[in-house]
Amino acid sequence: MSEEHHITPLKTYLLVAGTLFFLTAVTVWASYIDLGSFNIVLALLIAGTKAGIVATFFMHLLWDDKKNATIFVGSLMFLAIFIGITMTDTEFRGAVNPEIKDPINKRAAFYNSLPLTDDHGYPLDKEKNHHEGDKDHH
């Protein structure tokens, strides 16, 4: 064997774990602040940072032959393609055919345990006639 396996110093591991605990606290703290749609972006940024730290240090990718890191990054790239191309379909369905824009339109089974409305969601008793006129679009 030409070179020995890298032995990461104990200090590095403890520092890495400390950082992970700290970032966990940050992400919980950040979730209680209303940042609108930026909340999810921030949560994913922190999770991505944590994941990067785990892969780099705990999974030893930093000291490995780079082929291992290439495989891992490759898997993430394929995942990005998977998500990206799927979203180009699911996010723009309504643009082509408005009929299929809302995918969940079948009544879920547990609603059937509440036989209190008709097929269009209107109450079965006296209020039914009240709404009769405006359900034509269903």
Binding site: D102, I104, R107, L114, L116, T117, H120, G121, H137, H138
Partner: peptide, 8 residues
């Protein structure tokens, strides 16, 4: 009603 998530 359109999303069918309504009950009385």
């Amino acid at each position: 009603i359109a999303s069918n998530n309504i009950f009385f």
